[in-house]
């Protein structure tokens, strides 16, 4: 296989169930190096599960996930640890460590994951906080002292602190007002471009998806039902995408009113 043609991330036939509920039912998707892919879909369609499978936090029952051409399903030990160095992740709720100060949160991966000396890691953490528009004084606060928007920025600073090759964004604008959501979207675009990273984001916020994506894929009932360039999203010709993009209750997507 030609190295230039190898996708950064290649997902093939991934299946994952929780009890009787099949969440992922043969997902196929590629993401090229340096590309920003956004996966859209309704709540409970398995977007977070797919990202957790790629990250190795969940193990799929079937299928293949290749990073830089290397099979990662079932990878453990030192190989998994080395692979994790390539990743950064912004969690939906921030997932900041309550017991640590903000700068320690940002520097955590550098100190604990890579064994960097605390002083040096602190300098980098302050730089990363500045990159997301937060002053050094914020570094001394605890996460509980920050607003939701500031927590997202800190989580973004933590995700980019170790300059990962691949960054995942899980619902980056959920719970934010439109202005703060736009600030976060711009920061994501800026940070990803500056790092030259590959980005996979999951969201149901179409404004956010259009701003940060090079390409959009739609996940429905455990499968990718459409994917294409961001410019095509408004005239995809796919009834699932059309209904989702325009937020219509009527259409092929029937919302589950009860948990399965």
């Amino acid at each position: 296989m030609n190295g230039a043609a190898t996708p950064k991330i290649a997902v093939r036939g991934v299946e994952k169930s929780f009890g009787a509920k099949r969440v992922l039912d043969g997902v196929d998707i590629d993401c090229a190096a340096g590309e920003s892919l956004v996966i859209i879909g309704g709540s409970g369609t398995g977007k977070s599960v797919l990202v957790k499978c790629i990250l190795g936090l969940l193990r799929p029952e079937a299928g293949s996930i290749r990073i830089d051409g290397m099979e990662t399903v079932g990878l453990g030990g030192a190989a998994r640890a080395a692979l994790m160095h390539k990743f950064g992740m912004l969690f939906q709720g921030g997932a900041l460590f309550d017991s640590l100060r903000v700068w320690e949160n940002v520097a955590f991966g550098l100190i604990q994951g890579r064994g960097m000396e605390r002083g040096k890691a602190r300098t980098i953490a302050i730089e990363k906080l500045a990159a997301v528009g937060l002053g050094p004084e914020v570094g001394m606060l605890r996460p509980a002292q920050l607003s939701g928007g500031m927590q997202k920025r800190v989580a973004l600073a933590r995700a980019i602190a170790a300059e990962p090759e691949i960054i995942f964004f899980d619902e980056p604008t959920t719970g934010l007002d439109p202005i703060m959501a736009d600030v976060i979207n711009r920061l994501i675009v800026k940070c990803v471009r500056e790092l030259g990273a590959t980005a996979i984001s999951i969201t149901h916020d179409m404004t956010s998806a259009k701003k940060i994506a090079d390409r959009i894929a739609m996940l429905h009932q455990g499968r990718i039902v459409w994917h294409g360039p961001t410019a095509d999203i408004d005239h995809s010709g796919n009834p699932f995408v059309d209904q989702f993009v325009h937020g219509r209750a009527d259409g092929p997507i029937q919302m589950e009113v009860r948990a399965a």
Binding site: L57, M84, M89, F91, Q112, G113
Partner: peptide, 22 residues
């Protein structure tokens, strides 16, 4: 438990830190 339900344990793993060890 709070760390689990707020994704902090998953965050540890993504920061190259083994949650069991830490």
């Amino acid at each position: 438990g709070t760390m689990r339900v707020t994704d902090q344990i998953d965050a540890l793993a993504t920061l190259s830190t083994d949650p069991l060890r830490y």
